[in-house]
Design a protein around this nucleic acid. Structure first.
Lengths: 346, 346
DNA sequence: GATGCTTGTGAAAACGATTACCGAGCGTCA
DNA sequence: TGACGCTCGGTAATCGTTTTCACAAGCATC
């Protein structure tokens, strides 16, 4: 491994000059600069980043905290983050926190240790006041979830408005008894979607029945969507539409409906959220709210880069979502010719 | 930020002593050691890792190269890697290479720059001789895919044997015309599964028809599985069973079969591979070969840690796979009561 | 010709840890 | 008693950069 000293010797100048030429603090023109550049190339010189980091006390590493990479929603965001980071010459360090606070704190400790310059948090839960001290001292961006009580920059979609649109869509189809399959987690997205659900009903002058609000387990699992749907659809006055706050819950809900011998969307309409899971693999194709996951990640990283550079950045970015109406709701006419399953004989 | 000097001052000793106590090179008992420990705690001292890395010329970072985190198969492996790394105090850098060689080389450059101590490669393609120089100089482990021509340690399942088992299963059900939906990629797993397919047929004295071997696109997409199935099942003597080298291909194949008005498994049996995609969400549940993804990742990381420590490690680890028979093949009696879709009217 | 300003360069001081080397103290044994 | 070995702890070198500071040269101005 050639060091800067070797390059200086080969170029016949001091290390200071080498450093300056290589870092662009001097014109790269001129005889001496050329000698330096040639020597560096000839020796295949690459700066030692530990030394540079030590001297400059920075790391060019950013922390990514997410509950679980296995969840494709986060994986898509991650890939946006990764691309942006790569383009800006930053590396990222990934931590699957499983939403466990001790893990989160452990990895945020890297900020303190100067092993990382900033962080992107993917699944901040409400009530994360413990984050404040970190947010005050280090550049941090929240991605897709955020806690309004902790004033940290964030990028997300407008979950509230999206929920209103879903409800408009369902009510526009004539549905009056609409259930929601929510989740036990403490995400802002969950709270906002449920709030949108309630407000939309109230605004339309429809009753908000607590019976129609079902909380699946925190992990958005298929099974919990299934169970929730079975329980909602077994009510005496069963809902004719289900708004599920995630696609997997929705897919589970469709399976649950079938289990009860109900046709989707004939007997019950189902809407999901995210449009990232296999929403168009199986019939009926899922009506869902699409989020620009990749871009959410990409923008979050750019925001962080801005913060790292000491720039003033907007505290909040909302990216456009999109309600895509497919077969599991509406499109009633069309679905007649589609491969909509008949109830099983079980 | 407290430094080691501050701790030394507070404890009334030299920095050497502080370093030794904190690194366990001296007994932690005794009056002086206690003073050091107390001082470190009081000052909230955390060693600066850039300084440590510079001095020890190591980074405690390992590189993870994979084509795409968005693919749940890789995501599961990654989570095993992450857990093991975390336990051993290593960080990992993730790079979505998209199988593009320039990206792979760019990130492996971090080894040269001493920004990383080793690497785990997730999707080495056959013909990766360019990897040799890296493998000779740095600790590298291949995970799930490997190139037999480059002698690098690797962990995977026994793809060949798994393919034989799949074929045994299908032939045991009486199938004689079996097609395979393979892929255009250059992975060893693909080659081995196809070889298993051929060998099994030959061994059973059945003809190997090139018409029955279909190569879907490199990315294992749903659509390419669909298209491949449509083309295979449109043959005059259509196969009665399809072995798909990935679950998503298999799900696509099932959809394709339905498109043609064929019943799965009544008219055509379908088997997948991986058991990671939603194999039990939709009817018919998918028969597939399960891989212990999490453990593959975990073991790969442990192997790398061994290599980093200069230990002798096995060059190859094969973890057990498991063929899980579900509805999409066999279990014919049961499937009669299941929600198997009737052909659509399209 | 003295002065001030700009520009380019080198010497050397950081950055914060680990560790080679050395000397002091102590116990043991011939 | 003296030689020897062992442990313990301090001093200082070291890792490879970046950056401050000082100096010298070149040039214009008075």
């Amino acid at each position: 491994m050639a060091t800067i000293v070797d390059v200086a010797k080969a170029a016949g100048c001091s290390v200071a000059t080498v450093s300056r030429v290589l870092n662009g603090k001097r014109a790269k023109e001129g005889e001496l600069a050329r000698r330096v550049l040639d020597a560096a190339r000839a020796l295949d010189y690459v700066p030692n980043s530990a030394a540079r980091n030590l001297r400059k006390s920075e790391s060019r590493v950013i922390l990514i905290l997410l509950p679980n990479v296995t969840n494709p929603y986060y994986a898509h965001i991650l890939s946006g983050i990764g691309d942006s980071a790569y383009q800006h010459g930053y590396s990222h360090f990934l931590c699957n926190t499983g939403n466990r606070r001790e893990r989160e704190e452990a990895v945020l400790g890297r900020l303190t240790r100067r092993q990382a310059d900033g962080a992107i948090l993917m699944a901040t839960e409400l009530g994360s006041a413990w984050l404040k001290p970190y947010a005050e001292r280090y550049p941090i961006v929240q991605c897709s979830e955020f806690d309004p009580e902790v004033d940290i920059a964030h990028v997300s979609v407008d979950n509230y408005r999206a929920a209103l649109e879903v409800m408009d869509h369902l009510m526009g189809l004539g549905h009056r008894r609409i259930g929601i399959i929510s989740s036990e987690n403490r995400y802002s997205s969950t709270a906002l979607r449920v709030k949108g659900y309630r407000d939309a009903l109230e605004h339309a002058g429809l009753p908000v029945s607590e019976d129609y609000i079902c909380r699946a387990d925190a992990g958005y699992s298929f099974k919990s969507g299934f169970d929730a749907a079975v329980s909602l659809l077994s009510l005496d006055e069963r809902p004719t539409a289900l708004f599920c706050i995630s696609d997997v819950l929705a897919l589970g809900a469709i399976a649950g409906a079938r289990e009860l011998g109900l046709n989707v969307p004939g007997d019950v309409a189902v809407v999901g959220f995210d449009d990232v899971e296999h929403t168009t693999m199986f019939r009926p194709y899922l009506t869902t709210v699409g989020q620009p996951c990749y871009e959410i990640g990409y923008r979050a990283m750019e925001m962080l880069i801005g913060l790292l550079g000491g720039e003033e950045v907007p505290r909040q970015i909302q990216l456009p979502h999109r309600l895509t109406v497919r077969e599991s709701s509406g499109l009633r006419r069309h679905t007649l010719d589609l491969t909509v399953e008949r109830p099983s004989s079980q």
